[in-house]
Nucleic acid binder design. Structure first.
Lengths: 135, 135
DNA sequence: CTAACGTACAACCAAATGGTTGTAGATGGG
DNA sequence: CCCATCTACAACCATTTGGTTGTACGTTAG
């Protein structure tokens, strides 16, 4: 039971998502590429770093599913995926709901006033099955 | 007055926030520490890595403002900050609203069919003033 | 065809990450 | 007091990251 397709090997995807967001230049690229009219070269011109560096940033965003590229002639137009933020938000929601569930369970235990060993003891809750902490 | 605490040197903070979230072990720690009853040692016992490694993960979470530590005797209890997810969500909101504003502005331009220099022309939109791309 | 432009990728480098072990201070229990 | 436990931190190591330069390739313009 993988909740929603989120929990199997999703750790990788969530890792990439948050990692991609954890850089100011990349967040800035995201903001600039909503209209999808910017080529990688044009983007690169906006930053005090080489074309290759910006190209790598775009690649990171692409692997995280935050942008897509569309070729127009010899240019490659970068566009921010409209659903991208939604996906990030869902990752946060999952995190939040997981611990909201914990709080709820705790409330339940307090009501029952017994926890000796019978209660539903928070089974696993982890997401990482492949590269996770219990690898 | 830095808007809301978000926009001055916040790039750093947002960096730390997303970076902290970009690791499965750390997200797992967050889930486990909602009730705040777990000491670092007890946490460490849950992962196939050394105490020192888990200690570092907790430090990363702490620097990102995602957990707090409270000393109880010789133990240090880790607790997930309830507002933490809210902060992450706000960072996403900011990202989203930034580009929603862009889209709105674009729509506005299409309607007005003129932009000579009168309208509120997307002042800056960037967050990084210190270490940002335009450093 | 040739030149210019835009992209892609490889090789290289410094710094940060994520892990290890070892050691040193606090704190609480017998 | 002495010992076990928990925490904290330093030193070290391998890998990744974020940047560089250089080069090769495809496409468009002249």
């Amino acid at each position: 039971m993988v909740v929603d397709g989120i929990a199997d090997e999703t750790g990788d995807i969530v890792d990439r998502l948050f990692h991609a967001l954890a850089d100011g230049t990349r967040r800035d690229i995201l903001r600039r590429c909503v209209r999808g009219e910017l080529s990688v070269s044009r983007l690169a011109a906006a930053y005090p770093m080489s074309f290759a560096a910006v190209h790598k940033h775009v690649a990171v965003l692409e692997r995280a599913g935050l942008v897509t590229k569309e070729r127009r002639g010899r240019e490659q137009l970068v566009r921010t995926d409209p659903d991208a933020v939604g996906r990030a938000r869902r990752a946060l929601d999952e995190l939040e709901s997981a611990w909201r569930a914990r709080v709820d369970r705790m409330s339940g235990l307090l009501a029952e006033d017994d926890d000796g060993g019978g209660g539903p003891r928070a089974p696993d809750l982890r997401e990482n099955t492949t590269k996770g902490p219990d690898g």
